[in-house]
Design a protein around this nucleic acid. Structure first.
Length: 469
RNA sequence: CGGGAAGUAGCGCAGCUUGGUUAGCGCGCCUGGUUUGGGACCAGGAGGCCGCGGGUUCGAAUCCCGCCUUCCCGACCA
């Protein structure tokens, strides 16, 4: 029966494969306005799972959710020189509303440091009010020149954290905590995406930040994708928005602030980090549907057995969906594969006659036979094994596509297939320009042991360079 | 925003070069039946401002101009 592949093979045309997956897995459609995106239920379910996992981690660091307005006075942006310069080109500005020209144009938020800063200034009076740890789940708008579903849309969904602290040390420590305990932990343990953590070189820094940290993942085609970002804003925004507090000694002092975000781009990252020619591959801990219980035939006994298995899985807190036999078996199997559901339990009359069902792993195609009564109990362990195998595969892929080199020329060569790692001294300055001219950028700087530097001034740093999305 | 490609049914495409009556095909969709252990089959059926606007012409999917959108490669970027 060997059907022709439903998706364009990755090796033939990776961008086309990506679009095929987005469409065939029913994740998203282009919106009517350039760069906008309609997120379909399956795509949104994936995002909701990401939200749930990240939200729990964010709250565990002590931050609380709040919500700030979509519209920001344009004047707020001019208060921080680098910020306005960095964001001006991609702002959407409302100049006309309620039937008339507005006295002051209103910006549709591209990020909320400014408006949050304004209110932090109001809420922070004393050192006792610090740290102030806020997060919001919101949409933002950036008028991007080259949109791609999930990876870069004019409007996207994200979380943005904003915090204010007494000291540089406290702000810096908290930012690093977010980077490790929220983002890195989520990326590794849920998304199974082992990304490189590092700091951005000055050229790639967030407008207004004194330091930007990033998590850079390796996609299946070897390109880089920034999965998250954490900024130390120093006192830049505190100064611009008068975020002062009175210290224990009774002196007015400027706060240190941070901001950090992860967006619906992660859905694109999920696709490109794990997907294969059969479609998406969703790590079990993330999957909105972890197990599809598939009725091979629309038969009373089969359906009853499916319901029983699904019910026991539900009791074991496994996210499960039953696929009754409406349509051909092969078609339904293919559809679940495209959506990347980690496990299928196939229930058919032949197996059932012996009290058996078949379990199939999406990641490696492995089929195993289990007893109808016992299968539900074995699923959690199978899901965990699939999760760790997926992570191991991603680590191997990352390592296989990371090349230690010594010159800018070698780095350029390596960037055709992945990341190049080399001494930052070699690249800093002219080298970075040379790389940029070939669409290769410095993704991040690390210490030699892979840990996060304090800043770019540290000696002996290495940089990871790659082509990126 | 620069360079390239493309917009014809939900999706993928043919038709356009050389303008000419009711615009085709495959998949999908609907109805009925047979099916269902890896994208099923038969029969019948629905579905089109040929991206939008203007122009040329007796006549435009087809030729010309403008715009919009999508895709690829860059610059901007989560």
């Amino acid at each position: 029966m060997a059907a022709q592949s439903v998706l364009t093979p990755q090796s033939e045309d990776f961008p086309r494969w990506y679009q095929d997956v987005v469409a065939k897995a029913e994740m998203a459609d282009n919106g009517p306005v350039r760069g906008t995106m309609v997120i379909r239920p399956y795509g949104y379910a994936l995002w909701e799972r990401m939200q749930a996992e990240m939200d729990a981690r964010i709250k565990a660091t002590g931050a609380k959710n709040a919500y700030f307005p979509l519209f920001i006075p344009q004047s707020y942006f001019s208060r921080e020189a680098e910020h306005v310069e960095g964001f001006s080109p991609e702002l959407a500005v409302v100049t006309f509303a309620g039937g008339e020209e507005l006295a002051e144009p209103v910006v549709v938020r591209p990020t909320s440091e400014t408006v949050v800063g304004e209110f932090m200034a109001k809420w922070v009076q004393s050192y006792r009010d610090l740290p102030l740890l806020l997060n919001q789940w919101a949409n933002v708008v950036r008028w991007e020149l080259r949109p791609r579903l999930f990876l870069r849309s004019s409007e996207f969904l994200w979380q943005e954290g904003h915090t204010a602290h007494e000291s540089y040390q406290d702000a810096s420590a908290y930012a690093r905590r977010i980077h490790y305990e929220v983002y890195h932990d989520f990326l590794v343990n849920v998304l199974a995406c082992p990304s490189y953590l590092g700091i951005k070189p000055a050229s790639e820094r967030f407008p207004g930040a004194i330091n930007s940290m990033t998590g850079e993942a390796v996609m299946r085609d070897g390109k880089a994708l920034q999965m998250c970002t954490t900024h130390e804003l120093g006192q830049n925004f505190a100064r611009a928005f008068d975020i002062y507090f009175q210290s224990e000694a009774g002196v007015a002092e400027l706060c240190y602030t941070t901001s950090w975000g992860a967006s619906t781009r992660l859905v694109g990252g999920l696709i490109m980090a794990h997907g294969d020619d059969h479609g998406l591959l969703v790590p079990p801990r993330l999957a909105p549907v972890q197990v599809a219980v598939i009725a091979v035939r629309d038969d009373a006994d089969v359906n009853e057995a499916c319901q029983r298995v699904a019910a026991s899985l539900g009791e074991a807190h496994v996210r499960v969906e039953v696929d009754r036999a409406r349509g051909s078996f092969g078609r339904r199997v293919t559809d679940w594969e495209i959506k990347g559901v980690p496990l299928r339990i196939e229930v058919g009359p032949r197996d059932l006659a012996q009290g058996l069902v078949t379990v199939v792993r999406r990641d490696n195609g492995e089929k195993t036979t289990h007893s109808l009564d016992g299968v539900a109990g074995e699923i959690p362990a199978l899901l965990e094994r699939a999760q760790s195998d997926l992570l191991a595969r991603a680590v191997a892929h990352r390592d296989a596509h990371t090349y230690d080199v010594t010159t800018v020329e070698e780095a350029l060569e390596a960037a055709n297939d992945g990341f190049a790692r080399l001494a930052w001294d070699v690249v800093s300055g002219e080298g970075e320009k040379t790389l940029n001219a070939q669409a290769v950028s410095v993704r991040c700087l690390q210490r030699q042991d892979g840990s996060l530097p304090v800043n770019e001034d540290e000696q002996g740093l290495v940089c990871l360079v790659a082509k990126s999305y």
